[in-house]
Design a protein around this nucleic acid. Sequence first.
DNA 1: TATAATGTTAGACT
DNA 2: AAGTCTAACATTAT
Length: 277
Amino acid sequence: MPELPEVETLCRQLKEILPGGRILSLHILDPLLGRCDGRRLAGCTVEAVHRRGKSLCMEIGRGVQSSDQSAEGDLPVKGCVLEIHLRMTGRLLWRAAEETLPSHTRLVITFSTGMLLLIDPRRFATFRARPDSVVPPPLLDPLGGLPVRLLRQIAATRRLPVKSFLMDQRCIAGIGNIYACEILHHACLDPRRPTCSLSTQEWRKLARAAAVILPRAVTCRGTSISDWRDLFGVRGGNQEHLEVYSREGKPCRRCGGMVERIKMSGRGTWFCPICQK
DNA sequence: TATAATGTTAGACT
DNA sequence: AAGTCTAACATTAT
């Protein structure tokens, strides 16, 4: 469900709430989610929140009390990052008041101001605590603009379809199925084109398309095509801007051609065969 | 009942 | 060896 714009939406909303807040308790309700000793995090402070591709990271500080000498176990309490990945159906929901938990709630983090819930029917979401000392490799974040020269260079040896390339998180982090389809449509490029076949001109078009599609989706607080909701349970608005995703059989809004749906490496892929070349 | 769903990855295959 | 593809993960909705 959540791609870059959706995770960015959550991230911006969390930044308004969490920094400076102290964790009162943390409970993992579904062991599939990940392992983490909540007792060691109780009392710790969330110092900052940031996004890494589609992951949400909460930077955890020291915590106020005792914990200095608690030597049993080796969970990193002082400097660690709590990393949430929502995968397909994960959601985060902020609850200011105590209420019964929604079904499929997998994680509850309680603060003095409210509680953060992770809800995930399909149970693909992951949660882990990573010590500060482990520095993850830098990622290319497309929200800051795609570097055309660098991309062309990386792409030169890649024969896979350009859609798959855009969705390869190790290369560009944050673009998923919806936005890959939308960006390629905006750039008038056929998703099946071998990555290495794009000209510099076409990479420029791609970069421009991403610079339009992604920030607009963030402004709209994400695409609520089925069940996406923001931190406060509110629908996003970007579904109004979708040009091809999930629109097979409908006329292309640019050229009037009929939007087609094909399958590419297991994923639905929508495009207009008339104007995407 | 069969299919598809906004993601990732281990293992198979080139 | 490196690049690419497929199946699997667990569940719900159509």
